[in-house]
Amino acid sequence: MNILDVRDLTIRTADGRVLVDRLSLTIDPGERLGLIGESGSGKSLTTLAVLGLLPDGMTATGSVELAGTQIVGAREKQLTDVRGRDAAIVFQEPLTALDPLMRVGKQIAEPLARRRGLKGAALKRAVTEALEQVRLPEPGRIARAFPHEISGGQRQRVALAMALACDPKLLIADEPTTALDVTVQSEMLDLLDTLVRERDMAVLFVSHDLAVVSKVTDRVLVMKDGHAVEEGDVREIVRAPREEYTRALVASARQLESALDLRSTR
């Protein structure tokens, strides 16, 4: 059975504009899918729809089955059960994803207490473990810190720790490294790769950057203006893109990268 099965997902705004148009995709347990697209392609909206988190006024039609639960039209109660247990999400900007007024440790403790029913010393131990697991140094100090007191890279690790805390079957990562420096991005991608591999977790990885996606996933789906343009093996798509838009995307990425190669070998 698929962990995620999206069929003909269509997302409309209140005034009837179609932002995502009959999108279909599936992810098997333990499988990783990359969602590639530029701004306005609808890739982020798709991830929100998977968790039933669409902004007010937007409506989804079609079918989104997450671990057997139908998300489209589900009640908030059902959605709360699904979020965290079946799927968790890491956003692009960790500063806005974390509560600025709550210590980091407490924010991680919340899902742990709720999902695993932990209390007291056991909870504290679980928080430390969660922070260690994302390779944060001095987990004790980080747990006591407020989000603004740690660096952007550390915040994103905290966000990842929170997402992983309940051992979801699917991890959704929406441009998780776009706001990070390139050296930090590289560490973060490696970490994500390792942690997901250890847990045999399925991943939906959203990015505008082909090179970044190719480090984490094998299969990608290219989106443009709400439509699926092309789907397939990431190496295959980079080597021989079939659709015109994908060709333009790959050519652009190649052009920039080739400048780097020219300079460094000259």
Partner: peptide
């Protein structure tokens, strides 16, 4: 960028994600 001497520069160059 081609033959970085400083370790930080080297780390920077190596961190750039590349297409397969």
């Amino acid at each position: 960028l081609g033959a970085p001497v400083d370790p930080y520069t080297r780390c920077l160059v190596e961190s750039v994600p590349r297409l397969p």
